[in-house]
Design a binder for these strands. Structure first.
Lengths: 213, 213
DNA sequence: TAGATTGTTAATCGATTAACAATC
DNA sequence: TAGATTGTTAATCGATTAACAATC
């Protein structure tokens, strides 16, 4: 077994999709699957499935049979969730979007744990969000110095994100799940950023509907 | 002027990003910008900017000077929002995520108009969401027969999306903004689908934080 | 004019797909 | 054994980047 090729970003982006499909296969009691069948269900090609699997480790496919669903799930779980230690995350911005998004962190199904939530609106301070009390944004520095969160979830308008992201980087935040329109990749190239630009996605849909796909 | 090359999906995905940057340039009073400067601000290359602009129409760049911000904005607005007629959309699923997401439709900034919202929970029926009353999902067929929405926004769990998507396609829905884990591209290859898989995006972030980028 | 920048063609890079020997 | 499927290498495809003449 030679060391597997490092996964490229397109491959990484497909891993959660494999994970979900394989989970649903396991749920209905399917123990083994070929690259051809999996590709058909996912709308991709068998070649791509096999290439992707070659990047993620020792998948142990058996010629003539396919892959063990359990084995693939175990490999993907380790890659996506590590050894089970959950990444400590904080939420910045507790409006409607922040409230909806916080459940993805506290769901206990994505490998994170929400340790604090902050908002600039004093009227919200003390109210619970996904089971934890909202703090004022002025307490950010003190909290981070003590608890060392690794990930920040930004549910703020552009201007707020621009103001606060520098403070967060200085406080040791390594990763951003960013819902603001302010793109953090340019000012902080060393941070790991996952941008979710909902407005952009909606505009793209509009383009494709209006101008043909 | 030869007809511009049809924009590929990667180009289409970048158009909203250009749009937002150009808007912020206009806000601070910048009337003209070069591909080099724009690329630097957006974290891409001047080449890519010029290639992209060649797909979107008559950008009228001036050698030695750059592009007119107003002209670029006008072109992008027409591509993204058409002639101003807004796409009629319905929301399926009025939980926390649906509530947050509905504001992107009613914001009046993305080219859509929210004409109805549905939920399976009778207790929610009649309550307002982004200014319109929630209807019961059983009224879906009657409503669509009368009002012909073009876009459905799915804020449902996987199983709900699987159940309802077929009905929506039969009712003439052409586009989906899909937040469920059920991928509509495979069963309905003719629909225009914009998947926003928040859980997947969060898992990808976890992968990159745990396994190095 | 000289410097800067476009529009466009060519080169490169990387991702996807095809092919096929190995083998269960 | 025969049929199916993997792992991997090679071929293709497409997107990004570089280059440069035209020109403001």
């Amino acid at each position: 077994m030679q060391p597997s090729a490092k996964a490229s970003v397109p491959v990484i982006r497909r891993l959660p999709k494999y994970y979900r499909y394989l989970r649903s296969l396991k749920e209905v009691g399917i123990a083994s699957i070929s690259s051809r069948e999996l590709a058909a269900q996912m709308g991709t090609t068998a070649s791509q499935v096999r290439q992707d699997f070659n990047c993620i480790g020792n998948v142990n496919g058996r010629q003539g049979i396919g892959y063990s669903v359990d084995n693939l799930l175990a490999i993907l779980e380790r890659l996506l969730f590590g050894d089970g230690e959950r990444l400590p995350a904080i939420l910045i911005g507790c409006g409607r979007l922040g409230t909806a998004v916080s459940s993805f962190i506290t769901n206990n199904s994505n490998g994170y744990t929400l340790i604090a939530a902050f908002d600039a609106n004093s009227a919200l301070v003390g109210r619970p969000i996904s089971g934890i009390p909202i703090r004022h944004i002025d307490d950010l520095e003190a909290f981070c110095a003590q608890h060392h969160p690794q990930v920040a979830v930004l549910c703020l308008p552009r201007s707020g994100a621009q103001q606060i992201s520098g403070r967060l980087v200085d406080l040791g935040i390594r990763g951003f799940w960013n819902f603001s329109h302010y793109d953090l990749s340019v000012p902080y190239p060393n941070a790991v950023v996952e941008n979710v630009h909902l407005g952009d996605s909606l505009m793209s849909l509009g383009y494709r509907l209006r101008n043909g796909d």
